[in-house]
Design a protein around this nucleic acid. Structure first.
Length: 272
DNA sequence: CCTTCACCCTGCACGC
DNA sequence: TGCGTGCAGGGTGAAG
């Protein structure tokens, strides 16, 4: 479900709900495993500790304490929601934190591709050393990408989605970005010129920001922490539109094909 | 090192 | 109605 815009929205929601600094009163779990085993001992140690800050890096939500960071990844179907005392557990609720007296934050995740991890701040940098640059970071330049993609023959769509180059862009936004740039998703990454790379950066930032401002994309299950759907799916121009007429050239039919194992959408007339 | 692929899991849409 | 199949926003590790 969630790519950068959706994770950013949930992160903002959690700040509104929790309003750090806020002491953890307790927590409970309803199964021992999500994608990985829950760090039960480490989570026990957080009881009585204060949440100092909640922010986002890549597609991870970072809940910062004095000495550790609680890392939440939503996988495909993870969500957080606030609850009050005597809340009713749903089928796929796995973990609940009581973040102030009688106020709970519940983690629900049907597919359980998400996870929770407690990371000591001293190990934090090495934990994320394989993560690439944030797409909304002003340090992201065409020259930076040119160097990064030097010798990389992989299709540009695969490169855009690879978190070791740029973080936060997933399967939906990669297709959308390349459509706006009029670049074929199959084009080898190292064949793009500076102008095209600049274009990719500008459209990445534009689309991700638009998506954040539209509440993200709700294709199926995505809801923010207040259970609200996003609107950006109504602005998708190619994703999920195979065999529809291209809205730009009005001639090409949107094509879909698996690229590096992920379904990809583009207009063969507009995108070269 | 580079790249692709299967896989983790549940729910849903679809065809028969 | 029911059953089987394939697919879904991600990330990892094994294999080529």
């Amino acid at each position: 479900m969630p790519e950068l815009p959706e994770v950013e929205i949930v992160t903002r929601n959690l700040n509104e709900i929790i309003k750090p600094p806020q002491k953890i009163f307790g927590w409970q779990f309803f199964r021992k495993n999500l994608r990985y085993p829950l760090p039960i001992k480490d989570l026990n140690l957080l009881v009585g500790e204060k949440i100092l800050k909640i922010h986002r890096r890549a597609k991870y939500i970072l809940i910062e304490f004095d000495k550790v960071v609680l890392i939440s990844h939503l996988g495909m179907t993870g969500s957080w929601r606030p609850e009050k005392l005597n809340w009713i557990k749903r089928k796929h609720d796995h973990v609940a934190f009581e973040f102030s007296k009688n106020n709970f934050l519940v983690y629900e995740d049907p597919r359980r591709f998400g996870f929770l991890e407690v990371c000591d701040k001293s190990h934090f940098e090495s934990r994320f050393e394989n993560l690439g640059i944030e797409p909304l970071d002003s340090d992201l330049t065409a020259n930076y990408l040119k160097n990064l993609f030097h010798k990389k023959q992989i299709p540009i769509k695969s490169a855009l989605m690879d978190q070791k180059y740029i973080v936060g862009i997933g399967n939906i936004y990669a297709s959308e970005i390349l459509f706006r740039c009029q670049i074929s998703p199959l084009k080898p990454s190292n064949s793009l010129n500076i102008k095209q790379l600049e274009n990719i950066i500008q459209w990445s930032q534009s689309i991700l920001n638009q998506a954040i401002n539209s509440g993200g994309s709700s294709i199926d299950s995505y809801r923010n922490a207040f259970s609200e759907k996003g609107e950006f799916q109504t602005k998708h121009q190619v994703y999920g539109r195979e065999n529809e007429k291209c809205i730009k050239c009005k001639k090409g039919l949107i094509q879909s094909q698996f690229i590096s194992g992920r379904n990809s959408f583009w207009c063969p007339v507009c995108q070269k």
